[in-house]
Design a protein around this nucleic acid. Structure first.
Length: 420
RNA sequence: GGCGGGUUGCCCGAGCGGCCAAUGGGAGCUGACUGUAAAUCAGUCGUCGUAAGACUACGGAGGUUCGAAUCCUUCACCCGCCA
């Protein structure tokens, strides 16, 4: 466990930390119990959360003991965003999401052995807390003056305003750290760098109340090459839940990583060793067109999240669908398996308009949009360019008598199956 | 409490009685180049429609007018200045 700090540093996972020397020494000298928290604000985590989940896994592999917190209480309140007040979700919804997030996080951690992980929920120590206790025991240690200086709060005060509810969020998260430090001996909180203020507020509360010195570690917010937010596609966030983002789309997201960022993503997300990653980075620099680093990244992350078998299947599908121009050369089984990964449309007769198929398969939002795509020369049926706006499925050869691959532009694919 | 300014399409932001589905920028989409990369350049970008055209839209409601995003009334919200 001696080199985990260097490891995290090298992987670019340390954006901020409390006293580096002390933290490094603590991590090197024995098991440290640490916590990382996620608020149930949606039914699934997305790839942005993955950095923290995987960093927790790395720490556990180095012998440290994780407490995975899903915020059944904080999820009812909402961490202030700089933009606007959050809409409150009702308690039943949040409780349902807690269960889903817990199930999603669990596979990444080991719940047995000497560094066994523990799943915790801040509702356990928060729901019985009275307002008076909370204000006296927690609130008294917070200075409103300092809370007003926090970036998200200041932005909100200058724009849309902020409710007392959200303003109080930091007290709850700080109290979580205090409770976990007492209940479990937790001495390190891990979080995204957007959580830095909340995390250090917890460290300070613990110091004031219990006189103990605990640590904080923030992972950086990853960005794309142009500086925009990582983890969003035109169709929204990239979710870990396969129902929300198909494993195929998930794989494609990583495969499309930009050259400029792929090495950093490999360090942050892949569990490959340093030499191997440096070798892939070298390949990416010398032969970018081969995209070996992107392939490794997409495989690794998909395998971590969806399992090795699924990763292989979507990788094979990607290769089949992108690898050659002659789809007809694929045997039926490979084709069928590949198409199963794509969004799909059913057709009962070959007489349907291609335009309607594009809409049905989700490749175009409306008939007009689909027609526009054809007009722009960006629509294909089984790799044959569609050049008539009123083209019908029957104008194109079917693959194995009943399949067709729809394509919009270079990357957006869908399948059509002609019902018997 | 008083006075003034504002609310436009996914976002920013022009328009200030007909030529406005609405200038421009960004995002998005397509094409060229290339490598399922980035950058660049070009096209496109409310809905339906092959088209002609129809419909919906400029904070909400009502009104004036042959005709309104543009004028009037009113309601809501935001932002300044003065108390």
């Amino acid at each position: 466990m001696s080199d985990v700090w260097d490891e995290l540093q090298w992987r670019g996972l340390v954006a901020h930390s409390t006293d580096e020397v002390a933290l490094r020494e603590a991590l090197a000298s024995g098991p440290v119990t640490f916590y990382v928290g996620f608020d149930p604000t949606a039914p699934s985590l997305h790839v942005g959360h993955l950095v923290q989940v995987l960093t927790a896994r790395r720490l556990q592999q180095a012998g440290h003991r994780p407490l995975a917190l899903v915020g059944g209480a904080t999820g009812l309140i909402g961490d202030p965003r700089p933009t606007a007040e959050r809409t409150m979700n009702d308690p039943e919804t949040v409780a349902g999401w807690v269960g889903r997030l817990q199930a999603q996080i669990a596979p990444f951690l080991d719940f047995d052995g000497p560094a066994a992980a523990t799943m915790v929920n801040n509702l356990d120590w928060t729901q019985g807390l009275s307002a008076i206790e909370f204000l006296r025991d927690v609130g008294k240690h917070f200075s409103v003056n300092r809370m007003l200086d926090r970036e998200a709060v200041a932005t909100r005060l200058a724009s849309t305003g902020i409710s007392y509810t959200e303003f109080s969020y930091v007290l709850l998260q700080s109290n979580d750290y205090l409770q976990l430090s007492r209940l479990h001996g937790c001495a390190l909180q891990l979080g995204g760098s957007d959580q830095w203020g909340n995390i250090t507020a917890g460290c300070e509360l613990i110091r004031r109340v219990d006189g103990a010195h605990v640590h904080a570690l923030a992972t950086p917010l990853l960005t794309k090459a142009d500086g925009t937010k990582f983890g969003k596609t035109e169709s929204g966030a990239v979710w870990l839940d396969p129902e929300l983002t198909s494993p195929y789309a998930f794989f494609q997201f990583w495969l499309n990583a930009e050259d400029a960022t792929v090495a950093g993503y490999l360090r942050a997300f892949s569990f490959r060793g340093r030499e191997e990653i440096e070798d892939l980075a070298r390949q990416a620099a010398e032969a970018p067109a081969a995209r070996a680093a992107q392939r490794a990244l997409a495989h690794d992350v998909t395998a971590l999240v969806h399992g090795e078998d699924t990763a292989r299947a979507v990788e094979a599908a990607s290769q089949a669908l992108f690898g050659r121009s002659d789809l007809a050369a694929l045997d039926e089984r490979t084709l069928r398996d590949s198409l199963a990964e794509l969004p799909s449309a059913q057709a009962s007769v070959a007489d349907v308009e291609v335009v309607d198929l594009f809409v049905a398969a989700g490749l175009a939002p409306s008939r007009s949009a689909a027609r526009r795509t054809i007009k722009e020369g960006g629509a294909y049926v089984s790799n044959v360019k569609v050049d008539a706006e009123d083209a019908r499925l029957a104008d194109f050869p079917l693959l194995h008598g009943r399949y067709a691959v729809l394509r919009r532009g270079r990357k957006a694919l869908a399948s059509v199956r002609l019902a018997p």
